[in-house]
């Protein structure tokens, strides 16, 4: 949806007045007009859209925008070829780390069900609206958490608990596109 195109804006304006626009289209219109000077014939409409604009408390796009703003370096779920390459490298590193840790630290405290539950809870909070289920496989002092997303994709994480501090960490090892 290219709102720089006046024809698209005009078409959306008509849909807006007929209450046929989606919430996200209305949000996009309000953001556009708050950032751009409207043309003469659009002034009244732009004024109404920006004045009436709320906070779209239930907007999915807004929640996704939060994730982009809050974690600009986070790996997005929709990956491109470069991120795939990075993902494969991370998987390789994680597998290597797994074997190294397994060989050097033979007696580790096994991860507890309570800790796993905490990990699942934290993972749920990363994408509360996108995740439909999470499976956990305990492996010694770690657990592999696999989140199934609404669109059918799966994301896997290695969950570890830092000894001493008890801090929980989740490392993404596979983000399926």
């Amino acid at each position: 949806m290219n709102l720089e195109d006046k024809n698209i804006r005009k078409a959306l304006a008509e849909k807006y007045l007929s209450a046929e626009t989606s919430v996200e289209e209305e949000r996009a219109l309000a953001i556009y007009y708050s950032d751009h000077q409207p043309e003469e014939d659009e002034k009244a409409f732009a004024a109404m859209v920006t004045a009436a604009a709320g906070e779209w408390l239930l907007s999915d796009e807004g929640a996704k925008e939060f994730d982009r703003i809050a974690s600009p370096n986070a790996i997005p779920l929709k990956t491109n070829i470069f991120l795939w390459a990075a993902g494969i490298a991370v998987v390789a590193a994680a597998v290597a780390l797994f074997f190294i840790l397994n060989s050097r630290i033979p007696q580790e405290k096994p991860i507890s069900p309570v800790e796993i539950a905490e990990g699942i809870d934290q993972l749920m909070n990363l994408k509360p609206d996108d995740i439909t289920s999470i499976t956990a496989i305990p492996q010694g002092s770690r657990a592999i958490l696999t989140a199934k997303l609404k669109d059918g994709r799966e994301c896997s994480y290695i969950m570890t608990i830092e000894e001493g501090t008890g801090n929980l960490s989740l490392v993404a090892v596979n983000i399926e596109d």
């Binding site: 239930l58 999915d60 807004g62 929640a63 939060f66 703003i69 809050a70 509360p128």
Partner: peptide, 12 residues
């Protein structure tokens, strides 16, 4: 829902 609302308020 509370998380979604919080995120949208933050973005706003």
């Amino acid at each position: 829902l509370a998380i979604k609302i919080t995120k949208n308020l933050c973005v706003s």
